[in-house]
Amino acid sequence: MIIASLTTIGEVSFDQAVSGLEAIERVTLAPVDLVMLDLNMPDVHGLEVLRFIRGHGALRDLPVVVLTTRGDDDSRAAALREGATLYLTKPFAPASVVAQVRPLLAATRT
C-alpha cells in the first residue's frame, strides 16, 4: 500500500525482501535508488542491514528510510547514528511518506 502511494511519484519499480538477509542480498544484486527498511524483521535486525549498507563502499550514499513502530528517542537516535537518512514511525500517512521520500529519490537520480 505504501508502495502504491510511491508509484504516484512517477516511474518507480519495487522489490520486496522478507528478511534482513534478503534485503542485503537484494541491494547488492541490483542497483537500488532507495531502501525502505523495517527494523522489526525476522533473522537479521534492521539496524544490522543498515550497518552493512553503510559499511559497503558502493552503497554508502544510498538513501535508507527506516520505517518502524518504535517511536522512542533511543531507537531513533540509534538508527540515525547508524546512518538512516530518514526515520518514520507508524502509522504512516501515505501522502506524508510520499512527500518526504520524493526529494530523496530525486536526489539519487540526478
Binding site: A4, P94, A95, V98, R102
Partner: peptide, 24 residues
C-alpha cells in the same frame, strides 16, 4: 503514471484503504 500524488487528501487515503482491504 500520474505524478500528482503528493497532494494527499482523504480521497487519496481512501484509495489506499481499498488496496488495503484487497491485499488483506
Amino acid at each position: 503514471m500520474s505524478a500528482d500524488g503528493g497532494g494527499g487528501g482523504s480521497q487519496f487515503f481512501e484509495e489506499f484503504i481499498d488496496d488495503y482491504f484487497s491485499e488483506c
